[in-house]
Amino acid sequence: MIELIELVKKFGDFTAVNGISLTVEKGEFFAVLGPNAAGKTTSIKMLTGLIKPTSGSARIAGFDVQTQPLEARRRLAYVPDFPFLYDKLTPAEFFRFTGQLFQMDNARIKANAESLSGRFNLEPYLGKAIEGLSHGTRQRVAIVSALLHDPEVFILDEPMVGLDPHHARVLKDVLKEKSTGGMTIFISTHQLSVAEEMADRIGIIHHGKLIAVGTRDELRQQSGGEGALEQTFLTLTAVEANLIAERPQPKA
């Protein structure tokens, strides 16, 4: 459902993403972890078609995001870490707008918006201007609008930021339900507990490379340690960092 094939992104001489290959199956909940500036957001931007890869390709539901962008985006929903919303619109108007862009009929937009707004407790805010909403509420509006058209693939970049514990729980429940129902979830997060609790498989990106991928137990085995995902993550990224430090550095 999601395929990254030898994906590379270079910014000048700096390689932000270095040959990532990965397949995420239909209905799978995949979490990607990594330190800051590891290349997670850049990978997501290539996956959603916001930037072109230097080489390699990305596919959504079998459609190449560069050569068949419209087909890919029709099956995709993406919520970035700081989602854009039209400030002067109300959430209800914004839902209608995004629904119509996905060619949904008004009855379906209404039904889905009502159901999702109920789940995310957005009813009191549906008629208020978005500019007056708190960061967390805006985040919930962005998530509902993304889910409105029942995407086959849902990509989220740090979705828990700004959400209170109650709504973070609601989001986790909804994502799990959707994943069980066949939606592919690809989530980038720094919250290891989210990945540990929710993900079927976890990938760790470090210095632009996918250094480990597997279930929680498989990662634990790879790290050769015991305990929580935090320990596994720290061990794997530290091992990789040491490997890089041991490599011969170019002479100045």
Binding site: G12, D13, L50, I51, K52, A252
Partner: peptide, 26 residues
């Protein structure tokens, strides 16, 4: 779209030359 991708990729064609000139310097 190509230009937007170049802008979102942090720099243009000329920016690579400067990095090369600075490469290796502390």
């Amino acid at each position: 779209y190509d230009a937007a991708s170049a802008v979102n990729s942090r720099g243009g064609l000329l920016s690579g030359w400067k990095r090369k000139a600075r490469a290796g310097q502390p």
